[in-house]
C-alpha cells in the first residue's frame, strides 16, 4: 500500500537527491540518479572540455566525470572525505558528477518549487530547472540534460 501512496502522490511531489556544492544545496531528480560513489581515482582526459574532470572505472566501464562546480561556474574547492561522485543517467548516457557532499534524498512538494529563474545568472541559468523550498533551506534543482548535454553540441 505504501508504494501506491507514493505513486499517487508523485504527481505533486518530486524526489530529489540533494547535495552540496560549496555552501549551496543542489538537487537532481532521483529518477536520473543511478548510484552514489565515493571518490575514486579520476584519470585526466587530455583535450576534454574544461569542466570534465576525467574518467573513472565503474565496474569495468569507463565513465566521464563532470566537475559540477566548474560546470556551474562556482569556485573550486579541494576534495574532502565527503566528496562524492553521483552517477546520473540521461538518455542512455551515464555520467559521474563530482559534488562536495550528498546530503539527503528529499521529497519536495511541487508547490514548493519555484520555477522562476530570477535569481540565476544568465550564464548558468539554463542549468537550473527550479528552486525547491524545504523548511528554511533552498535546493537548486538542476536540469540534467543541460548539465550533460552541452558537450555533445560542441
Amino acid at each position: 500500500m505504501a508504494s501506491t501512496d507514493t505513486q499517487a502522490a508523485s504527481a505533486e511531489e518530486v524526489q530529489v537527491v540533494a547535495f552540496k556544492l560549496r555552501s549551496e544545496e543542489y538537487g537532481f531528480s532521483i529518477l536520473n540518479v543511478q548510484e552514489i560513489k565515493g571518490l575514486t581515482d579520476i584519470t585526466r582526459v587530455p583535450f576534454a572540455p574544461e569542466f570534465v574532470k576525467g574518467v573513472i572505472n565503474l565496474r569495468g566501464s569507463v565513465l566521464p566525470v563532470i566537475d559540477l562546480k566548474r560546470r556551474l561556474g562556482l569556485e573550486d574547492t579541494p576534495y574532502t572525505p565527503n566528496t562524492r561522485i553521483v552517477i546520473v543517467k540521461f538518455d542512455e548516457v551515464s555520467v559521474g558528477m563530482l559534488v562536495d557532499a550528498v546530503t539527503e534524498v528529499r521529497t519536495i512538494d511541487s508547490d514548493d518549487i519555484d520555477a522562476s529563474r530570477a535569481v540565476t545568472t544568465e550564464a548558468n541559468g539554463k542549468f537550473v530547472s527550479g528552486i525547491g523550498k524545504v523548511d528554511s533551506r533552498l535546493i537548486i534543482l538542476l536540469n540534467i540534460s543541460e548539465v550533460i548535454g552541452l558537450t555533445a553540441e560542441e
Binding site: V45, V52, S61, V62
Partner: peptide
C-alpha cells in the same frame, strides 16, 4: 579497448580508454 562514450567522443589524439589491472583508467 573501451570507448569514451558519447560525451567525450571525437577527442583528438585519443582512440579510447582502457582499464588497467589495478583498476585505473588509461587513455
Amino acid at each position: 579497448i573501451k570507448t569514451l562514450g558519447k560525451l567525450l567522443s571525437g577527442l583528438k589524439m585519443l582512440a579510447g580508454a582502457t582499464v588497467l589491472g589495478d583498476g585505473h583508467v588509461a587513455m
